[in-house]
């Protein structure tokens, strides 16, 4: 299976991932190569096999609904690109 330059642009948009215009063709080629590799999966009949998401088929552990974290806002915001009055700043979303 092969992907076109347009497919790559669509996927990049879904991932909100900027890619250089001059690289689009090479991504299309690499991803198509990966898809060819993956096509080998169809060699194996997996009818009736339960998908495995976790090596130990473990269920997620639950914890008591209790406060365990301290307030680390200042510490965490100290490494943020832009903050004001305890809020993370981004470009204006609503006009």
């Amino acid at each position: 299976m092969s992907l076109t330059a347009d497919d790559v642009k669509k996927i990049a948009h879904l991932a909100r991932l900027g890619i250089e215009e001059q690289d689009v063709v090479s991504y299309a080629k690499d991803l198509s190569g990966m898809l060819d590799l993956m096509a080998r999966m169809s060699d194996l009949d997996t009818g009736g096999v339960e998908p495995m998401a976790h090596p130990m088929d473990q269920a997620q552990r639950l914890r008591a609904d209790a406060v365990t974290e301290q307030d680390n806002r200042e510490k965490f915001q100290a490494i943020a690109p832009q903050v004001e009055a305890g809020l993370y700043l981004v470009p204006k979303v609503i006009e």
Partner: peptide, 12 residues
């Protein structure tokens, strides 16, 4: 994704 997870089980 689901196909790969099925193969993952067979490998395991």
């Amino acid at each position: 994704y689901i196909k790969a997870q099925k193969i993952r089980r067979l490998i395991s």
